[in-house]
Design a protein around this nucleic acid. Structure first.
Lengths: 346, 346
DNA sequence: GACAGATAGGTGAACGTTCACAGCGGGCGG
DNA sequence: CCGCCCGCTGTGAACGTTCACCTATCTGTC
C-alpha cells in the first residue's frame, strides 16, 4: 500500500468520476446542489484515489482558512501551554490546523516581523502574551485584521464586554480573593512575589494579579509592601524570594504562579521556616503538580484549557462573520485551600 | 499606518519597479543573476509596498517548504513540550513555520488520517510519540515520504546509527545507570513505577526506561519485581503507587518521570514513610521543578530541547538532500543525585 | 567582423483550489 | 405550446508563487 506517488488532485478525481473539477469541489464542500447519483460517483472516485484536499491551495484560492496561528509567550509556562492545548484540541475537532510562533521578549519585533509570522494576510490569529511583544502584536493585528484575531489575557469583565476580541479571566479578582483569604486568616499583611508581566504593567491593568492583591490590602487599610519581582524560572524565583523568607515579619506570601510558590516553599524550608506554621504560601494557576507537593499547595485554580478553547470558538465566529455568539463560559478562578496556608503563628 | 488593504503581491512590486514578476522573485530569493541597479529598484519597491512573500503560494508552487509539522503526544508532558520548544526555536531562527498536531491515543488513526494532518503531501514532519498512534504515524510517513520525516524517541546508539531518520537519547542506558546507583547504595532491589509507553513496549525496545532498569537487576542477579504501570497524570501515578509505598520491603523506587516521582513522594509521606530515610525515590527528566521539591528530587537529566533542535536540523538536511551531516550532539542523559536517594535504613 | 558564450531579463505554464458566472435541460404556469 | 425559473453542472479566471524555457544584449575571441 501507500504509493509514494504524487497525491491526487481534484482534477484526477474529476476525470475518474467523469465530472468537472467544480463538481468535485462541490461534493467535497458539501454543497446541496449536487444530484445524489453524481455525488456517489464522486465519492467513489475520492475513495479510490485516496484524495485529500490540499490545505494550501484551498487557502490560496480564498476559501475558508481552516487554520489558526497562535502567537504565544514561552510555552514552558503552564498558562500558555494549557491554553495552547485547549486551542489545539478545539481546532483538531474541526480539522483546522494550528501554527505556533513564540514571541521572544529578547527580540525586537517590528510590525512587519509580526505580520511575517502569519502564513498569509488575514490569517486567523490568537495572541497569548501580555508582555511587551504580545501587546505590540495585539496592536498590529488590531489595526490590520481585527476580524481575524483574538487575544487571551487577564481582563476584567468590563474589558471583556467592551472588546469582542478579548478572552480571559480576571486574575485581579482571583488575586484579591486569595489576599482577602489570607487577611481573614489573621495575617497583618500579605507579601507578593510577582511574575514579570504583573509588575511590568503594575498599576495599569485592573485584572493583573499584583493589582488585585494591592487593591485588597489598600481597602483593608493594611500596609502594601513593595511587590518582589521575579523572573519566570523557578531558579530566579528562588533567588528573588530570599529576602522575603529571611524576614520573620513576613507571614504570608502570595505568589504569581505555582512555580514561584514552589521556589518559595523550598527557600522557606532552607531558611528554617515551616510552612504553613511560620509562613503561609499561596500559589496561582493550580498547576497539576500543586496538589502533590508536601505540604500540598494552596492555590487559585485557572482553567486555561477552557479559555483556549473559548478563544478558538470566538475566533471562528469572528472570522466567518456569524453573530458574535457568546463565548462558551468556563469556570471562574477559584481559590483552592490545601495545606500551605494557615493562621500566623504568633 | 497599516492599511487594512490587501497585501501586496509580487506583481504589484513588479509593476512599481518596472520589471517582470520573475525578476522580483529572483531578487527575493537572492538569485545572483540580477543586475545591481535592477535589484535596488526592486528592493525599493518592496520596501515601499511593504511586500512580504506569501508562504502558502510559495509552497503551492513547489518552492522550498520552510515549514515543519510536528506530530506529538500530549504537550502537557514535559518531554514533548521541551522538544517542541527546541524545534520551534530552531525553526524560528530560520524563519520556518511550525504546525502542531496532537496524536490522541484515544482516536484510531487510519493512514489517511495521518496524512491528512499534513498541510500538503511531502510536508516535512517530526514525530514525537512512541505510543501506538506515534508508531503508526512513523510507519506511514516512512512509507510515503522517508526523506521528509524524522522521529524522536528513546533509541540506542545502534538504532540511531542504523536509521538516519531517528533522533533521541538512550533512556534504557540512563535508567540502567540510575538503577545501578540505587543498587550500589545497598538496596536489595529497585521497584519501578512505569510510564505508559515504557510498559506498552516493555521487553521490546532496548532503549526504554523499564528495559534498562530490568536489565541491570537481572545482571546483578537481583529479583526483578513486576513494574507498576501508571498513567501519565500525577493523580493516576498517586493511585498506582499506593501498594508500593505501603510495602515496607520496598526501599527504592525508580519512577518513569518526575511527575510520577512527585506522586510517589507524596504517597510515601502520607503513608508515613520518610524519603530518603525509609524510601529512596529517583525520577526521570530533570523537570524544572525537580530541583525545588522538598526533599529535592534525585533524577536523570534529559536535554529534550537540544534533541528537538537536533531533530529539526536533521530534517532540514534530509529534505534538501544535503549530505546527512552528523546531527549536532547533545548532553547524554546523566544522573543528578539530590536529596531523595540514600542507603536503605535497615 | 562574425560567432560562441555568458549575462540579464522576460514569458507562459503549473501548483490545487475556490469563486463568479454561464449553460442546459425539465417542469410548470399561462 | 411558449417562456420562465430552478436544479444541476460546466467553464474560465483568479489566488501568489516558482519552474522551465526562451530572448535579447553584451563580451571577447579568432
Amino acid at each position: 500500500m501507500a504509493q509514494p506517488k504524487k497525491a491526487a488532485s481534484i482534477w484526477d478525481v474529476a476525470r475518474l468520476a467523469g465530472v468537472s473539477h467544480q463538481t468535485v469541489s462541490r461534493v467535497v464542500n458539501g454543497s446541496p446542489r449536487v444530484a445524489a447519483a453524481t455525488r456517489d460517483k464522486v465519492l467513489e472516485a475520492i475513495a479510490e484515489l485516496g484524495y485529500r484536499p490540499n490545505r494550501l491551495a484551498r487557502s490560496l484560492a480564498g476559501g475558508a482558512a481552516e487554520s489558526v496561528t497562535v502567537l504565544t509567550a514561552d510555552t514552558s509556562l503552564y498558562g500558555p501551554e494549557a491554553a495552547l492545548r485547549g486551542i489545539e484540541k478545539a481546532a483538531r475537532a474541526l480539522d483546522w490546523s494550528v501554527q505556533i510562533s513564540v514571541l521572544d521578549p529578547a527580540d525586537t519585533h517590528s510590525d512587519a516581523d509580526i505580520i511575517a509570522r502569519l502564513p498569509r494576510a488575514g490569517e486567523p490569529t490568537i495572541i497569548m502574551a501580555h508582555d511587551e511583544p504580545g501587546m505590540r502584536a495585539k496592536q498590529v493585528l488590531l489595526d490590520q485584521q481585527p476580524h481575524a484575531m483574538v487575544a487571551i489575557g487577564p481582563y476584567t469583565a468590563e474589558e471583556l464586554a467592551a472588546s469582542p476580541w478579548l478572552v480571559g479571566m480576571d486574575d485581579g479578582k482571583a488575586a484579591a480573593e486569595a489576599t482577602r483569604y489570607l487577611l481573614d486568616l489573621g495575617h497583618a499583611t500579605v507579601h507578593h512575589l510577582a511574575i514579570p508581566t504583573s509588575t511590568a504593567t503594575f498599576g495599569g491593568g485592573k485584572a493583573h494579579r499584583a493589582e488585585g492583591w494591592a487593591r485588597v490590602l489598600r481597602e483593608a487599610g493594611r500596609e502594601v509592601p513593595e511587590p518582589v519581582p521575579s523572573g519566570w524560572t523557578i531558579a530566579e524565583a528562588f533567588k528573588a524570594v530570599q529576602p522575603l523568607v529571611a524576614d520573620p515579619s513576613v507571614t504570608a506570601i502570595l505568589c504569581g504562579n505555582d512555580h514561584l510558590a514552589l521556589a518559595t516553599m523550598r527557600a522557606a524550608h532552607l531558611a528554617g521556616r515551616s510552612v504553613p506554621g511560620d509562613l503561609s504560601v499561596v500559589g496561582f494557576d493550580n498547576t497539576p503538580f500543586s496538589a502533590y507537593t508536601t505540604p500540598a499547595l494552596t492555590t487559585v485554580n485557572q482553567d486555561f484549557e477552557s479559555v483556549g478553547r473559548g478563544a478558538f470558538e470566538l475566533l471562528r465566529h469572528r472570522v466567518d462573520g456569524s453573530i458574535p455568539r457568546p463565548v462558551p463560559g468556563w469556570p471562574e478562578p477559584e481559590l483552592i485551600v490545601r495545606e500551605t496556608s494557615g493562621p500566623p503563628s504568633s
